[in-house]
Amino acid sequence: MARKRERDLLHRWEGNPILTVEDIPFRCNTVFNGSPIKINGEYLILLRVEGQQGYSFFALARGEDGYYFDVDPEPVMMPEKQGFFAKYETRGLEDPRITFLDGKYYILYTAASDYGSRIAIAKTDDFKSYERVSFISEPGNKDCVLFPEKINGKFARLDRPLGSSDVGSIWVSYSEDLIHWGYHEPVIEPRPGYWDAHRIGASVPPIKTDKGWLEIYHGFKMTSCGPIYRMGTVLMDLQNPAKVIARSGEAILSPREKYERVGDVNNVVFACGAIVEPDDHVKIYYGGADTSLCVATVYLDKLIEETFS
């Protein structure tokens, strides 16, 4: 007898959520979107924590198996209070995405201020000290992920500028120095009528596969009760990511469980990173309802297969 197919391609871990506000050793409002990295067998997750004041900052979680985590007693990155970065971080730091490239860990994040949301880049060698590099967009842009290797000799990123009528598409840009960016091109756009009808953005830093760059992205469809955030996949050409090879028709994960449906922002699953294990088992870490951090898993070949369907 065939096994009953799960409604979503991704398999939720039975112990979800892996972190909630109860697990944070200091006072805060919520913990949600987090970006994972595996270093020498240890799992780290850079967490977006929203403080009681209402703005977000980053904390660090550590675990040995990818499922059970302890959170460091102090936040690791707070909005700058002085200097050039302070002006554009007054409303907090959001949605980190970690990429390991050329021996360093780069953290792409959204800096929020009265001037709007813009993308910033920071780096670290050890997740003990963090150095801000630069802001790399103007306002009106977020959801930036850095490719884990150079493409045609240049750094490459995906991001989500807001175009006409506030439509958000995923774009690719290139840079020689990580500071000055150009050669912008659109990659994929929202699809009217689909689950990703209104706005999309990059979620997980691109994963290199033999079929192309695999991007797990988020998209939402607007309803009269607000947006429903889901996850989908797209495969991009290895040499030219603006060239789309395939895109999933269906969402690979939709809000269904209570921790995804009920929270500060209802009906949201929002990934900021994934770990591909040596056996190609993929752990995707995602925020549930802007109130919890969860994990769901899938084999890489299934993700690719779904992207072509």
Binding site: Y115, S175, D177, I179, H180, W181, Y183
Partner: peptide
């Protein structure tokens, strides 16, 4: 003038094609 905020911004470039430090 990026749309967000409707303000005047400026950016710098070494090659006229890639821009940053906005």
């Amino acid at each position: 003038r990026p749309k967000a905020g409707d303000r005047i911004w400026m950016s710098y470039s070494n090659d006229l094609l890639t821009w940053g430090e906005s």
